[in-house]
């Protein structure tokens, strides 16, 4: 279709007509989304994407995630790349290979088209880098003050090969707990941006697609009992969930948990515990203790797992408590997050 005026990506803003389903919507979709995400499924221009069935020995995995981050742009990423990484990682944590994504956009009236363009391009880049296609989508516009700039909801589909798939219920007493890298980078990047805190070296979000790392771990042929990405609620909450699902306890070693120095300092400054801060590019893997070295070697050989570490072990515990040997030499519980982590006042 030809339009009288091209979209003004320099000064233009989203208005209600972009969500009307009419000509303005079509122009936005054609000249922005379809152009950036271009692939054979989108090009068909239908209401849905027709996807090939998995090979006979594979099963389908599907996962969905809504992204409501504020600010939209942060050091190390933006809501666009995050919405791709987040859903890819949920599929990858099932042990599956992510292949396709859908994307729904809820845009707030007044959103600068320049911001939208930057975010859409960032999504397209993240998807391309991950080798995943965004095959279907939707756009709605809500009135000013009824959205936080924009929300993005993505759904991912992947193939899961036959064999032992990781699951939250498969942790066994004696198993080793591995973490792929430093804790808290994403949450502290967002928080320091939100609060206008400056540090000598800026904290960057760790937002990244983890399926490459998972694939590298799978080639080690270790039976990975549990895989999970510690996002909201942080490592502490993730481990508590696994402990309850598997009906086991855990004992962590605080000194073994990798931490970026600036993140540690920022947490100290704000009275936060990095164990509860969100990550978007880290995973926890649980496997038999005798496989830990092999799996750790495979993780460390991948760029996203260079700082991987053995951080603790699964133990017998009817109460399903996660505990930690503190750096100081004491021992304490590591409970789930309650409410939101709040800074202490004195």
């Amino acid at each position: 279709m030809s339009y009288v005026k091209p979209l003004d990506f320099k000064h233009g803003r989203i208005d209600m007509s972009h969500g009307s389903g009419g000509r303005a919507s079509a122009q936005l979709i054609e000249s922005l989304f379809a152009a950036a995400f271009d692939n054979e499924f989108l090009r068909q221009g239908n209401d849905g994407a027709v996807l090939p069935l998995p090979p006979p020995d594979c099963r389908l995995v599907m996962s969905t995630d809504a992204h409501v981050v504020s600010p939209l742009f942060f050091p190390g990423g933006d809501i666009g790349s995050l919405s791709v990484h987040g859903t890819i990682n949920d599929v990858a944590m099932m042990g599956a290979t992510p292949l396709w994504l859908s994307a729904s956009f809820i845009l707030e009236e007044g959103l600068p088209l320049a911001d939208l363009q930057r975010i859409v391009q960032s999504m397209a880049d993240a998807a391309q880098e991950a080798g995943v296609a965004i095959v279907t989508g939707d756009t709605k516009v809500v009135e000013r003050n009824k959205g936080d700039g924009m929300y993005i909801s993505t759904t991912g589909i992947g193939y899961l090969a036959k064999g032992n798939a990781p699951a939250g219920s498969r942790a066994r007493a004696g198993d080793a707990i591995l973490l792929s890298g430093t804790l808290g980078d994403h949450g502290m990047a967002i928080l320091s941006q939100r609060e206008g805190l400056q540090f000598d070296s800026p904290i960057r979000s760790d937002s990244a697609s983890l399926h490459g790392l998972v694939a590298a771990m799978q080639t080690s042929s270790v039976d990975i009992h549990v895989l999970r990405d510690p996002t909201r609620g942080g490592l502490a909450t993730t481990l508590n969930e696994i402990a309850r699902q598997s009906k086991v306890g855990m004992l962590l070693d605080e000194a073994a948990i990798p931490l970026n120095r600036t993140v540690a300092a920022a947490c100290e400054f704000l009275g936060l515990d990095p164990l509860y801060v969100a990550n978007e590019g880290k995973l926890v893997a649980i496997c038999r203790a005798e496989d830990a070295d092999k799996l750790l070697t495979a993780m460390r050989a991948h760029p996203l797992g260079q700082a991987a570490a053995l951080i603790g072990q699964v133990v017998v515990d009817a109460s399903c408590f996660v505990e930690m040997r503190t750096r100081l030499g004491g021992r304490r519980m590591v409970d789930m997050l309650t409410g939101e982590q709040l800074p202490r006042i004195c």
Binding site: D273, R325, R327, L328, G329, G330, R331, R332, R344, C346
Partner: peptide, 15 residues
């Protein structure tokens, strides 16, 4: 309360 929190968080009570 700051002391209460630190005693627990660092596992001092058990020492």
């Amino acid at each position: 309360g700051g002391h209460t929190h630190a005693l627990s968080r660092y596992g001092v009570l058990g020492m």
